[in-house]
Nucleic acid binder design. Sequence first.
DNA 1: TCCCAGGCGGTAG
DNA 2: CTACCGCATGGG
Length: 290
Amino acid sequence: MEKYVLENQDSFNLVHIFECGQCFRWNIQEDGSYIGVIKNAVVKVETKENKIVFSGKVLHGNFAPIIRDYFDLDTNYLEYKNKLSKIDNYLEESIKFGNGIRILNQDLWECIISFIISANNNIPRIKKIIEKISQNYGEEIEFEGKKYYMFPTPESLSRASIQDLRNMGLGFRDKRIYNTTKMILNKEVDIDKLKTLNDTNQMRNELLKLDGVGPKVADCILLFSLKRLDVFPIDVWVRRVMNELYIHNENEEKVNKNELQFLAKEKFLGLSGIAQQYLFYWKRESGRGA
DNA sequence: TCCCAGGCGGTAG
DNA sequence: CTACCGCATGGG
């Protein structure tokens, strides 16, 4: 049993982090803690008074560095929040509301597959499919008497036929996952090299070569796995929020993507991706039952 | 029951 | 380059 404890950590709230829509493999428990699988580890996170307690099990590697990296603990979010809060009242308000949001550092390969699955899909079902794929093709790891499954490696997932993938409930995305897995495995797209690129557009163009990766999915990968904070993934929710706050077009559908990209770039000081998370979480959650 | 979901790829104009 | 359509499945 591994353990790691943080004290007096600002900008860290479990619900904000896990429910702002960036990840799919974390599940809330009866006691309010969250359990998830990252890399080779099962991790349980809970808040106790002013402490954040991480416990869990790793197959190989060290626990603390995995945690620090994944939860982006060496980044100072106060700096981001100060900058963004000054921009306008919406951002100030949204940051108060979701003050514990952090952008996780997710595994690139897992992120690619997960967001290909996200296309024209809903979050509960996305989570279910990813869980099923992990159960069938990922390594088992036991923690507190329960079995968990790591996300499969490309090698492991490449053993699935298109029909096997279809049986996971992937629907029309089966071929995309199949092709992309092959492309990554044979280094038609070298995702290790990809990580070392400096230019965001160069990275994006590489990602766009993958089957099932279009502009929106590519931007999610850039933001959630490659720390490109200046990208701005546009989905129906973001369009809705941006239109409501800044554009006021009567016909939301007609708000075009280029206009949104331009607005975000101009307004959010190179922190579009983070700004989006605050605004998105704020509007979505405060709109629920309020 | 029926609508639709964190788009994408293909094809037509 | 933009506009549109089909797509598998199951959650709500």
